[in-house]
């Protein structure tokens, strides 16, 4: 841009926080993932790309413990595991959004995001139901945190609107809000921009980068829009029919012949 654009600092990443080693996953005779390995470093934005059926969503499901791979291990924050339950992943600071929005349609934006705080509420059901004393105090603290997220994502105007009535782009934003409410260290986004128009995509990209920047959250995302992927990610993993085709910086991946053949098509520049 011009001379006064903000001076981007050199992106600094920490150690490898999530490492996927030799993962294979099959459903009956269908091999969804075959010997996949890659690592995600702290504060990185990593994109997984690939054609439909490449195994991208399966990969995310393996990471957050929803699918159990037949082979291979996942090391998250130094802890190696083969199998984990999604709620354990959640407690370890992994949050995600879904390809098909999975919100409570009849509940308001505010309530939906509040559910993201669920793992952090300590009072038991009885206290919560009575809604007095410590339970009330706890809820106020969580509400305050959620209000920060609402402010961050600029969704004040739909705070009290039932989510089912919102347009798609906003629902996606609410879903991101709910994932953020869990204060994740690792955020998994499954096609955060699918079905959005250009303006909504720009907004969403900005929010993702802001999350990464302000909270230092490590992000793994699946996306089809190559423009977006190349712009916002630090590292790209390319899958094709369960195999890993390439793994590198956006520029490396863009110029990889195998990737071009399988997925990108001819480079236009």
């Amino acid at each position: 841009m011009d001379a006064y654009a903000p001076q981007k600092k050199e992106r600094v990443f920490g150690d490898v926080v999530l490492s996927v080693d030799d993962i294979s996953l099959s459903f009956g005779g269908v091999q969804a993932l075959a010997n996949i390995s890659f690592g995600v470093r702290e504060h990185q934005v990593l994109a997984i790309i690939g054609p439909n059926g490449a195994g991208k969503s399966s990969m995310l499901n393996v990471i957050n413990g929803f699918y159990h791979p037949q082979q291979g291990t996942i090391t998250y924050k130094g802890e190696t595991r083969r199998q984990m339950k999604p709620h354990q992943a959640a407690r370890q600071g992994v949050a995600r959004t879904f390809q098909n929005i999975a919100l409570f349609k009849g509940m308001s934006t505010l309530d939906n995001i509040m559910t993201g705080r669920n793992t952090m509420m300590h009072r038991n059901l009885l206290w919560q139901a009575l809604h007095v004393g410590p339970a009330r105090k706890e809820e106020l603290e969580h509400r305050e945190f959620v209000e920060n997220i609402i402010d961050f994502l600029e969704i004040e105007h739909i705070r009290k609107t039932p989510v089912g009535r919102l347009p798609y782009g906003l629902q996606k934003r609410v879903e991101l809000g709910r994932a953020l409410a869990a204060q994740p260290e690792l955020l998994l986004l499954d096609e955060p921009m699918a079905g959005m128009n250009l303006e909504e995509k720009e907004d969403m990209s900005r929010f993702i980068l802001d999350v990464n920047d302000e909270f230092g959250t490590t992000i793994v995302l699946i996306e089809h829009d190559m423009g977006v992927v190349m712009d916002i990610s630090d590292h790209v993993v390319v899958l094709d029919y369960g195999r890993k085709l390439a793994d590198g910086s956006p520029d490396e991946v863009r110029s990889n012949q195998e990737v071009i053949d399988a997925y990108l098509g001819v480079a236009h520049d």
Binding site: Y4, P6, Q7, F152
Partner: peptide, 9 residues
């Protein structure tokens, strides 16, 4: 302050 972190002119 939001998003202004890198504006250090």
């Amino acid at each position: 302050q939001r998003g202004m972190r890198d504006y250090n002119h």
